[in-house]
């Protein structure tokens, strides 16, 4: 790019607080490819989104063909199964309820939801955005991993290690009447 002396074109006006600083010859920096590494969404984003939908649809369709949704016997209020289990995503809750009815079922889950919402207002440090496991966020990542492990372990215990009367059973010793 070639600089042009501005005073030859626009003489300074002493009445103005602003003035022309510089004229530059050359094409705009945005032509062809910008310096910020942008690409057109068409087709780069679109093709990825279409592929993701195809994959998602294929997996769900395959699962529903080869592994149909379960349907047990008709509901019978006279015949409670032992144990009666909540849906898998609430088994962590049910496990906590076994320890303390109120705190396990409502108190802790309510605090967890409030705590999750509070995260961005507690963690104001503006570092590590856009990177997986940024080294500057080691502590935050460790805490989150701890939370995920607790959630997953509670669900696994509820699903595979709880038998009649919510007693502890190992999966290989589970009474056959419990699925």
């Amino acid at each position: 790019m070639k600089r042009i002396r501005e005073e030859e074109i626009f003489p300074r006006n002493p009445n103005k607080t602003y003035g022309l600083m510089e004229l530059v010859k050359g094409s705009s920096t945005r032509v062809d490819r910008g310096p910020d590494d942008m690409v057109s969404s068409w087709p780069h984003l679109l093709i990825r989104e279409a592929a993701l939908f195809a994959a998602c649809f294929a997996v769900i369709l395959a699962l529903s063909v080869f592994k149909p949704a379960p349907l047990e016997l008709e509901a019978n209020p006279q015949k409670p199964p032992n144990p009666a289990k909540a849906p898998w995503y609430f088994l962590g809750l049910q496990e906590l309820v076994a320890y303390d009815a109120f705190w396990g079922g409502l108190g802790i889950p309510g605090l967890v939801v409030i705590g999750l919402m509070a995260i961005p207002y507690l963690d104001r440090h503006h570092s590590g955005i856009g990177r997986w496991f940024a080294p500057s966020r080691r502590m935050a990542c460790a805490l989150w991993t701890g939370y995920v492990v607790i959630v997953v372990v509670l669900i696994i215990i509820g699903q595979y290690f709880r038998g009649p009367n919510w007693a502890w059973y190992t999966p290989w010793n589970m009474p056959p009447e419990v699925q």
Partner: peptide
């Protein structure tokens, strides 16, 4: 997910919702 779980009206659905509604009842503690 929870509200849809009851609709098949099989044993799994009925007793899972019974358990879930029981958890909601624990708010008596407050």
């Amino acid at each position: 997910g929870f509200t849809g779980y009851l609709l098949p009206w099989d044993q799994l659905a009925f007793w899972a919702i019974t358990v879930g509604a029981g958890i909601a009842g624990k708010a008596n503690w407050i």
